[in-house]
Design a binder for these strands. Structure first.
Length: 539
RNA sequence: GGCGACGUGCCCGAGUGGUUAAGGGGGCUGAUUGCAAAUCAGUUUUUCAGCGGUUCGAAUCCGCUCGUCGCCUCCA
């Protein structure tokens, strides 16, 4: 990876670095992205507490930051993406007692569930997945350091961060010193001020605990992220991400701990993604999860995304790519309204791409020669960097338009990763190519040396390059709700019927032909008669 | 109560001062087709919650009103 990135970087020195602007929660403005140690970029994203199976809302951050890493890498940076796993926490402890099994086992199961879901959504850019329980020495020494520097104080086995000692406290979430952390919680009596938060919590005898200078206990939530991000990314790193709901207190506290401990700003750019909301029923996975009310249950539609196994089941019926596309259609800072209808609609629009890829495959497989081994869309070479993908349209009308579309796509992504606008360019491009195929009758057979075919293949390469940046269309789409072996068998059977129908139509027996089509349609199989032949899709 | 976000055409959703307001979904029309589907073209779309202000010019800036939502306690 480092070799490839270094090569890309070197080749980029000739051309100006792309100007990427990102919205920084701290400054509340879009800023020009300038990493601390180019070409290296460090990104830390707050991951889940693994006490239950994940829901679709948990996927928002990972999909976005996976995409951000893809784009930055594509733009010549050498990116390290860290997503942590919180595997020790009050809820995990409670769950462990409830189920009568060790906390680590629950954490293990739920981490596996989380990772399996990420994989289905094409999230594969994560470099480190640190677990809190693997970082106890770092966490403890971090707290010791804070105590030594006078930012923390121990009381009866608990250790608290002294908020009053940090003059920058509250900057990120825009809160004044006296309006923080309410009453101070159960440990209020031990705190110097209600806003102080726990770095270390002493454990009762029967609870899981780690030895520490303050006695047996476990780390507070915020310190885990400070310790792990420091361990992997250093005193100051480029990007810290997370959901808007984590801004306070979690990120504010992380920022205080790390900033005070290392006497340096923790993070240059704070990025916060919008939360997902289910219809009009409040945010998915929020309080409504634990306090379901009868009215919501009656609404029904959102229940699938809640509770055990919700996401895995959703992925099975909807496919991971559909969900990823759905998440990327909306700007990452906006609230995403989740609903089954909206997800279906996203799926419908994806079909436009899949049909084009099929169409492209059929055309290029026909022009196959020894010079042109049948170029299937999913096998096209994929330019890995911005400079590598650039090309000269050389006056070709189609390539001139595709080149302009590519510029538009990149401009959208440069502007705070506007994936929604970028996707619209992809749709435009597909229309350009369909029009091109129609105008030059490429579907009914073409010469591989024909310039229109060459420009079609080149254009498809650009589509592949750009969609790859979004993590879309990397491999042929999975079939919703089905397994691949059954699908292969079904495909053969349907093609048998397509052949029979073709024979009927050739002898003008339209009644038989239409009967085959109609009855397949009743079974949810739509036939597509095109110049290049008949294919099918699920309707 | 404190802090903050949002309200875009039938629906979803880009768009933070200046060409005809992206794109998708749906409806309708035309080309194409034996007929459909797919594809292409056009249309639904002078309009951006309402009112007022700034400006040569605003969906975009300011003020007020109405509405929706989030955080302030664990949460991606």
């Amino acid at each position: 990876m480092s070799t490839a990135a270094a090569t890309a970087t070197e080749s980029d020195t000739t051309s100006p670095k792309p100007e990427i602007r990102i919205y920084n929660t701290l400054s509340k403005r879009k800023e020009l992205f300038a990493p601390l140690r180019p070409p290296k970029v460090g990104i830390y994203l707050c991951g889940p507490t693994v006490y239950a199976e994940s829901h679709i809302g948990h996927m928002v951050g990972p999909v976005i930051f996976d995409t951000i890493k893809r784009y930055l890498r594509y733009s010549g940076y050498d990116v390290t993406l860290v997503i942590n796993i919180t595997d020790v926490d009050d809820k995990l402890i409670a769950k462990s007692h409830q189920r009568g099994i060790p906390m680590s086992q629950i954490a293990c199961e739920m981490t596996a569930d989380y990772l399996a879901n990420l994989k289905e959504l094409g999230v594969n850019q994560i470099d480190y997945l640190p677990r809190a329980t693997d970082h106890m020495p770092q966490i403890i020494s971090f707290i010791e350091e804070l105590e030594k520097k006078g930012f923390a104080y121990a009381v009866d086995g608990d250790v608290f961060f002294d908020v009053a000692r940090d003059p920058n406290y509250g900057q990120l979430s825009n809160r004044t010193a006296d309006a923080q952390q309410g009453e101070g919680g159960e440990a209020a009596g031990k705190k110097r001020s209600p806003g102080d938060f726990a770095l270390w919590k002493s454990s009762k005898a029967e609870q899981i605990s780690w030895d520490s200078p303050w006695g047996p206990g476990r780390p507070g939530w915020h310190i885990e992220c400070s310790a792990m991000s420091h361990q992997i990314l250093g005193d100051t790193f480029d990007i810290h991400g997370g959901g808007l709901d984590l801004m306070f207190p979690h990120h504010e506290n992380e920022r205080a701990q790390s900033g005070c401990c290392h006497d340096a700003p923790m993070v240059k750019y704070w990025l916060h993604n919008g939360l997902m909301r289910a219809g009009e029923k409040g945010k998915v996975g929020g309080k409504s999860d634990r306090e379901p009310n009868p009215d919501e249950a009656a609404a029904g539609k959102i229940s699938r995304s809640k509770g055990a196994g919700g996401l895995a089941e959703l992925i099975r019926t909807q496919t991971g790519e559909r969900i990823r596309f759905f998440l990327l259609r909306t700007h990452y800072r906006s609230t995403i309204v989740y609903g089954e209808k909206i997800l279906e609609e996203a799926g419908t629009s994806l079909e436009t791409f899949y049909r084009f890829f099929d169409r492209f495959n059929e055309i290029t497989s026909k022009v196959e020669t020894h010079d042109h081994p049948g170029q299937l869309f999913y096998d096209l070479p994929t330019p890995k960097s911005r400079s590598e993908g650039d090309f000269d349209p050389a006056g070709d009308p189609l390539l001139t338009e595709i080149h302009a579309a590519r510029e538009k796509f990149l401009a959208a992504m440069d502007d705070d990763f506007n994936s929604g606008a970028a996707i619209s360019v992809l749709f435009d491009s597909i229309r350009l190519l369909n029009r091109h195929i129609d105008a030059h009758s490429l579907a009914s057979g073409a010469d591989p040396e024909q310039s229109e075919v060459k420009s079609l293949i080149k254009s498809a390469t650009v589509i592949r390059e750009l969609s790859n940046v979004l993590g879309l269309f990397i491999k042929p789409p999975a079939t919703a709700g089905g397994d691949d072996q059954d699908t292969a068998m079904l495909d053969q059977v349907v093609h048998l019927l397509i052949d029979l129908r073709k024979e009927a139509r050739e002898r003008k027996d339209y009644a038989t032909g239409d009967a085959i089509r109609d009855r397949l349609s009743d079974l949810g199989i739509a036939l597509l008669d095109k110049k290049e032949g008949t294919s099918w899709e699920r309707s």
